[in-house]
Design a protein around this nucleic acid. Structure first.
Lengths: 222, 222
DNA sequence: TGTATTATTTAAATTTTGTTTAAAAATGAA
DNA sequence: TTCATTTTTAAACAAAATTTAAATAATACA
């Protein structure tokens, strides 16, 4: 299920689009401004941004998102005239839709972009694991058995896979997966790492897949 | 999390802005005058300065901050008339907001500045080291091995990278990394320098990356 | 050159951080 | 509602990082 960040200050349109896309199977987070952008930044598959917004405008938000992750597709929304005016400013955007629009149109463009940007769809192999990034099936090549994870374990593992090779701080991980502020000293994340290792590591006491970066966080390398 | 120094003598506005920015994920230090400026000088990512202040005025404080580190963005706050009067004195400032203002506006400008001033996020090469400031990965180009640092070592090294080519006093370094007052004669910092050199220098006994400036402190040159 | 000052190195003590286990609380399906 | 499963909390334990302390080395300058 694709995580979509949608920023729109007009309540009516916002609710309408959010309901429509949700009904079509997207996981939509709707914000009315870019103020809390940072906490979503590293955990989205696609962004839909209105251009005219109070505070940070859609251009700035779009550039910020691209900077954080080049591979996040962005759709800009705006009145026709505004788009024509500022076409050059849209260079970072991957598509744009002019208001007013039909929900089918937006949904079609969103789906097309997700297809185009889909992270190497297919099989990802890490050590003895074979991960199908589309169906989310994880297989242990040694035992030839499937590994089933619980909800949180899935979210956590996916977060690692989306940020392969990066050192992720505990803050990033907790905020990315739980969507809440991380409290210094909280051991919840560590316990989940432990249980995840129990399932995916050959020897959970000597983990090779989820590396501990002491004092900072964790990392999963390709 | 961006460290913001905010100087404002009006208690009510000060508390309001501090709470708002803190709620948006900034680490705000609010002072009512520039008296203790020196101790914060080298450990801030951004400054928000009211112009009208008892003692040192906002102009002088701003110039002092820029002198210490050219790369610290500064936002000035003041009544509209005052800004128009003294526009020429604002040449050092990077943005200004006139009172009264909406918190969204201040937050948006602050975020925009932080983005604009963000140190080139990417690959930095120093001698045989290759440092990716985004993924936090340091590679020794000679051995092609990754160098893993401990938490303090990371903070310390990052402090050097943020102040490349500057001679940093032991006070600055200690206060910047530990956030506490440096005690004359304390060897803690030196021991950490030693362990950091052990990991990043070709020959830790003849360091070329972290230079010792006897009687003052240390320096890392590009 | 000799002495005082400052920095480096090493090792041990202390503190912090991460792991593991178990039990309690929350969630969700039958 | 009950029962099984998942998630969170808590605490004991282990490992590693940080700090302290002391011995050694290098440098400045009288």
């Amino acid at each position: 299920m694709a995580k979509t960040l949608y920023i729109e200050d007009e309540k009516e349109i916002g609710q309408w689009v959010t309901e429509d896309l949700t009904g079509r199977g997207h996981d939509v987070t709707w914000l009315t401004s870019g103020n809390q952008l940072e906490q979503y930044l590293n955990n989205i598959d696609l962004a839909i941004l209105d251009i005219m917004l109070p505070g940070l405008d859609g251009f700035s938000i779009g550039k910020r998102i691209k900077k954080a992750n080049q591979d996040t597709p962005i759709v800009m929304l705006s009145a026709r005239s505004a788009v024509e005016d500022k076409l050059e400013g849209l260079s970072f955007a991957d598509d744009y839709v002019t208001k007013p629009f039909h929900p089918d149109e937006l949904a079609a463009r969103v789906d097309a972009l997700l297809r185009r940007f889909q992270k190497e769809e297919g099989i990802l192999e890490i050590r003895h694991l074979q991960i199908d990034t589309k169906s989310l099936i994880i297989i242990n090549k040694q035992t030839e058995k499937e590994i089933l994870l619980t909800g949180k374990q899935y979210q956590l593992f996916q977060y690692f896979l989306r940020h392969l090779n990066q050192i992720l701080t505990k803050e990033q991980l907790y905020e990315g997966v739980w969507g809440e502020r991380f409290m210094e000293g909280d051991k919840t994340l560590m316990v989940h790492i432990r249980y995840l290792r129990e399932k995916i590591e050959e020897n959970p006491a000597k983990p090779t897949i989820i590396e501990t970066i002491r004092g900072i966080g964790y990392r999963v390398k390709k």
